[in-house]
Amino acid sequence: MTMCVITPESRRRRGKGRWAKQRPVIQMFHVSKSFGNDPPTLVDINLDIAKGEFVFLTGPSGAGKTTLLKLIFLAERASKGQVLVAGRNVARLRDSGIPYLRRNIGVVFQDFKLLPRRSVLDNVGFALHVVGTPREVVREKSLRTLKLVGLANKAHLLPPKLSGGEQQRVVIARALVNDPAILLADEPTGNLDPALTVEIMDLLCDVNARGTTIVVATHDATLIQRYQKRTLRLEQGTLVAEEKGARAAQLMVQG
């Protein structure tokens, strides 16, 4: 099927991932999240994601997948419980420390968050300027990353002139351009056709093989079935199950 799954290369890396299980990079202990007086969005979440692991996060719409990811890069703070990233309790992180946490986390936003009046290249380069990378390096790195997602020829267009799938790939490029230690991808293939989905997933597998911890939130049962990864399943704000690909996909299809 895909390179990611069958090569001995990837098997070796998965082995590495298992070894790394002793070194958790994302942990949650009894985490709850409520917005105002609404019923809580997340209830008593406990999870443990190891360094170098590739994890799917699934569940029906509104289950709280995006919210859970937001707790990791502190777009939202947990109402209760503790969130640890690379061993640090981010619940206690002061606002001034947030930027330094985020520089290690690439995020593929479900709603893209691209700047409509800046070129694709500038949008990708944005993440590099923020850390004070020189202009030429920004340009060169951004172009290289755009090539990875197959958009080098669209570098100078404005995002609104791109198709949904192309925009999604720009977002993926922006998340990857910094070589982040953690990649959080919220429906990264939601707008892609099957062929492109495979391509992007292979790219993510490659990135994962180079040591980046990856969490992919998705509805897509075929994705989960094809890539046999640990899958966390959210339902109405609680983590109901944790199983390996095929079984998880089966459960999803059965509903």
């Binding site: 890069f73 001034s96 922006r174 910094n178």
Partner: peptide
């Protein structure tokens, strides 16, 4: 403001 929001999401400090 959109630009500011995104800058902050990709790790910009307030000073930046």
């Amino acid at each position: 403001r959109e630009e500011i929001e995104i800058q902050k999401l990709v790790g910009a400090t307030n000073r930046f």
